[in-house]
Design a protein around this nucleic acid. Structure first.
Lengths: 406, 406
DNA sequence: GGGATTTATTGTAAAGTATCCTAACGCAAG
DNA sequence: CTTGCGTTAGGATACTTTACAATAAATCCC
């Protein structure tokens, strides 16, 4: 409930109000002190004092004169910051992407390099080249980096700083990634599961903006979910929340889930297995997921059958997730999840047939950079906390780690 | 993150510290002011002041002299209260139970009356008789009731104050229960799903005491789960979290789940369907769940087969829940869930085979009154908030409703 | 229509209140 | 005599209310 160790002393009030004002400024956009006072339920003197403090630490900028509204000349305050940069990296199975943003979440540079082989050495090497590129383009240097967030597939063991169950890049498993990356890049990374970062991205910039409890269902070369529960990313006891691959939808003995898992390999297998029933199909073996979806748009019979099956499989996972935690909405993401046009209606129909309270089912609008966007959002939070902690006392330090939870 | 409307002013600090001290007193037991000061990271003067305030509102009692420990004679402070009573009712399919407790969670009177027919009229009538009995026994009167918590099967729509999807007592569905009970009993009830109350009970008194994230899996005449996520009961967007009956473990088309659901009717059906394979069994049709479990303890072949199947089915649900939210532990409850001795090993084994991170699987120790215990715990929180709100300002009122969420 | 006046609203200063802490002191038990 | 509790006093921090000066728009008036 309440933090157990932190001291509750007067200066904690100030910190609360500073955080609150900053959040308002970030969400509502620039405003002058009196306006902030009203939004934050503070008196004007306090609002002005808080803003001054935020300007002092560099989290807020002041633009001195202004005219327009009635009243005395007002300073406008912006939640912009030139304090430093937020570096984000997305370790994907085929590409490694990176971006540099400012503390306010604005992306300054983005790049994507192909990952030629899925070895650890190659991952590190590619990371260096992408990071170098975005840093150069952003005009920031390593010294300006306030936070460094790395999105990776697999289950992240936050305590040990390593990947416990690697997904697509098996060589990551068991590697002390935090240590390794700190040695390689010179600053300590925060490792986060990639789908969790997508969920954070959706919460901040996408379909989850005004939704308290939702799930991101990512379907691609694998399947996974990211959960936002009551506005907080939910990682679970060992960081394995959303590892829905393991749901025994085909009984206790089938640990491979080939007939329920909608990720790409299984789709191709399924297509091959039913192909003989659709002799008029123009698709030929070997079946490729992307081609199947393309053919479905052209009403190819085999493709339509496969796509319907994929939709049904996705609906199974959505139904399961919502039966457990009752989400308001589910956002589809990933290479297959994003093939909305041919899937969405069927997914909705099947889901509505299974559960009494079907969630809203939508498709992500965030594109390829969702992981990076989420990493930036998380990095911004971390950077903010660093700034607060830097000049602050026991409580904010204690709260900092708790807050990174968001 | 931070409450949006509440004002952050100095007196909020005091309230935080009062809540904190009260919680410590409740958890750690009686203590003198200096000890509390250390536990709460407060100075001795502040600790004494806070305690005095709590004594003033009646949430804490002071016992003046003491000898034994070194130092000056100390006042001991107890988190006991004679402020008023907490009334709890458990609407079950076969019994309606009620209890009266004090604000500190101590049960003063408990009773259980059989529900002869599952009509709404009968439910109300039986509730009246049980409530009258416990009130009389507790020596409290209606006027002393600070909170009134009612546990009911089904999905509770908290906004409308009604049961949206009634489980075993179908006549409850769609009834404006809050309104109705307020008219019948004279004070406003808080309706809560019964399994959620069991989860709250486990959190406060049972296997969930030091566990942040866990699930209660209740298996009896139906199946349902209650979730504690990060120390908070999770109800879901429409209050339907934990309605795991709907998980499509047998495919999208089977909406009856007879072959995966381990609740009692299905067990009996399953027993009948495999009986012919176990000619040496002493069990005879019609098969009753309780008899089957009893026979399993005597190593009856059919009973063992059935029990193994039930264990497997339960493991499916546990695996599903933990795949989605990654719980630290699962507490089995309900008429069947509590038949631990013959199930637990098998459930653990099957679960470990399905998911990489199996949770601890335990059996409830709370007995028949778990729902009432949870209702009391919730009622205590509500009553406390009422007391805080009564003499307090905007923020605590605003926070009160938020806190009832716990 | 143009200039003066009113109105609205901002920012800041001063005073008051609430909270917490530290320091110091008295007191009692071992 | 030492230890540790409770209390009082003084000082620091933070928030509010009240009051006032500054200024731009709106209004009024001739």
């Amino acid at each position: 409930m309440s933090d157990s160790t932190a001291q509750v002393v007067p200066s904690y009030l100030r910190e609360l109000n500073e955080r609150r004002v900053l959040e308002i400024l970030r969400e509502q956009g620039p405003a002058h002190a009196a306006h902030i006072a009203r939004l934050a339920s503070l008196s004007r003197p306090t609002s002005a004092q808080v803003l001054r403090a935020l300007v002092d630490v560099g989290l807020v900028e002041e633009q001195i004169p202004m005219s327009g509204d009635p009243g005395r000349a007002k300073s406008m305050f912006y939640a912009v910051s030139t304090l430093g940069a937020v570096l984000s990296v997305d370790i994907g199975a085929r590409f490694i992407r990176a971006s540099v943003g400012d503390v306010n979440g604005t992306q300054l540079a983005t790049a994507s390099h192909a990952l030629t082989e899925t070895t650890l050495a190659s991952v590190i090497k590619t990371m260096h080249s992408v990071v170098d590129e975005v840093l150069a383009e952003s005009k920031y240097t390593s010294k300006d980096i306030l936070s460094f967030v790395v999105g990776s597939p697999g289950v992240v063991d936050r305590e040990a700083g390593q990947i416990a169950i690697a997904g697509t890049i098996s060589e990551l498993e068991g590697v002390k990634l935090t240590e390794l990356l700190e040695k390689e890049f010179g600053f300590k990374p925060v490792i986060e599961n990639d789908v969790n970062l997508v969920a954070i991205a959706e919460q901040n910039f996408g379909a989850g903006k005004n939704v308290d409890t939702f799930a991101v269902l990512s379907v691609g070369s694998g399947i996974g979910a990211g959960l936002i529960i009551n506005g907080q990313i939910h990682r679970g006891h060992r960081g394995a929340a959303g590892e829905i691959f393991y749901i025994p939808l085909t009984g206790a003995d089938d640990i491979r889930h080939n007939t329920s898992d909608p990720s790409s390999g299984n789709i191709e297998t399924f297509a091959a297995s039913v192909a003989k029933n659709y002799p008029d199909s123009k698709l030929v073996s070997p079946y490729k997921t992307i081609e199947i979806f393309q053919a479905a748009r052209d009403k190819d019979s085999l493709a339509l059958a496969v796509v319907a099956n994929v939709a049904m499989r996705i609906a199974l996972y959505i139904s399961t997730i919502t039966s457990v935690i009752d989400v308001e909405s589910v956002v589809l993401s990933g290479g297959i999840g994003r093939q909305s046009d041919v899937l969405l209606e069927e997914i909705r129909a099947v889901t509505a047939n299974i559960v009494p309270y079907a969630p809203n089912i939508e498709v992500t609008q965030l594109g390829d950079n969702a992981v990076l966007l989420g990493a930036s959002a998380l990095g911004t939070k971390i950077a903010q906390n660093t700034v607060f902690a830097r000049r602050s006392n026991a409580y904010s330090a204690a709260r900092e780690t708790a807050d990174i939870a968001l």
